[in-house]
């Protein structure tokens, strides 16, 4: 095993024209962790993953994978990384058998036993054309190609965004099984927070190209609290704790805080919060994140 973190970004930035897709992004993904990269569409998640595999070049800062620069030393990085791009592009007219053969030809480290076993477990016929598969099955085939490379780092860009809840669970189960068997590191981006709390052990929240929050999920859950109390100014609390979100009614004030130490005035009722509440608080309730899944339904 390598002692370097699986992924490390330092003041990383990427600009398209005058628009920063990613800016001042600093984070570490320890080897063996399963990290969720969360944020609304356009937050910079895809940009970060593309930088990690050297598909694009940073405008500022640096990124390294297992201690190597993906663009300067692609041979030290690419064989160790599996990447499943958003909407998992596969040749639609190929059969599953042909798709696996293609994978074998393109990847020197291809483990055909892994690929064949997964196809068997999925109950798919090798003669079936990729274009005729359901969304969930296509995602599973894309994952199979990535896993047969025996990667030490698996990058998944919005792998479950288009899947129904059952297919989503089955896909994540396939990822976790591979983690159990090989101890690989996983970074998966998602704008859907459901399932992440049980699947991932670390969280990165990205919004507007900036990292908003980075840390182990368990610690983040322990640090964040929802305070409710009579209407008041948040300033007193803000002197001690980090106030992430505040809302007021005529009589009541509600604050979501990141606790600095553990002392509150007795006028506050203190509640625990789940991961989804934390994510929404950082993204702001009016941001695109809350609406990301809604437009199709609203338009009808």
């Amino acid at each position: 095993m390598n002692e370097s973190p699986a992924l490390e970004a330092t003041a990383l930035g990427k600009r398209y024209g005058s628009n920063w897709a990613l800016r001042d992004c600093t984070l570490t993904v320890p080897a063996g962790s399963v990290t969720a990269l969360v944020g609304p569409n356009g937050a910079g998640k895809t940009t970060l993953l593309q930088l990690a595999v050297g598909l694009i070049e940073p405008a500022s800062g640096a990124i390294s994978v297992f201690g190597h620069d993906p663009r300067a030393e692609p041979l030290a990085v690419l064989p160790r990384v599996g990447f499943v791009a958003q909407d998992h592009p596969l040749p639609r007219r190929f059969t599953i058998g042909e798709t696996l053969r293609l994978g074998r030809k393109l990847n020197p480290s291809w483990d055909d036993a892994v690929a064949q076993r997964r196809v068997d477990e999925l109950g798919l016929s090798r003669r079936q054309r990729v274009g005729t598969l359901s969304g969930g099955e296509q995602a599973q085939v894309a994952l199979t190609l990535a896993l047969a490379k025996r990667p030490q780092l698996l990058l998944l860009d919005e792998p479950v965004a288009s899947l129904d809840p059952l297919a989503r669970r089955e896909f994540l189960s396939g990822v976790l099984r591979a983690v159990t068997e090989t101890g690989m590191t996983v970074v998966l981006s998602s704008h859907i927070v459901a399932d992440l709390e049980r699947v991932c052990d670390r969280l990165v929240i990205l919004a507007n190209g900036h990292t908003q929050l980075v840390g182990p999920i368990e610690q983040l859950l322990a640090e964040h609290r929802l305070l409710t109390g009579p209407r008041t100014d948040a300033a007193a609390v803000a002197r001690v704790h980090q106030v992430i979100r505040e809302s007021h009614t005529e009589r009541q004030t509600t604050l979501l805080v990141r606790a600095n130490g553990h002392v509150y005035d007795a006028c506050w009722e203190v509640h625990e919060v789940d991961l989804e509440e934390i994510v929404l608080a950082y993204l702001g309730t009016t941001s695109a994140a809350a609406r990301v899944e809604a437009p199709a339904a609203v338009a009808r």
């Binding site: 099984r177 159990t180 049980r198 699947v199």
Partner: peptide, 10 residues
């Protein structure tokens, strides 16, 4: 891990 779909580290 398979029954609950949770992280093996957990």
């Amino acid at each position: 891990v398979e029954q609950l779909t949770i992280n093996p580290n957990t």
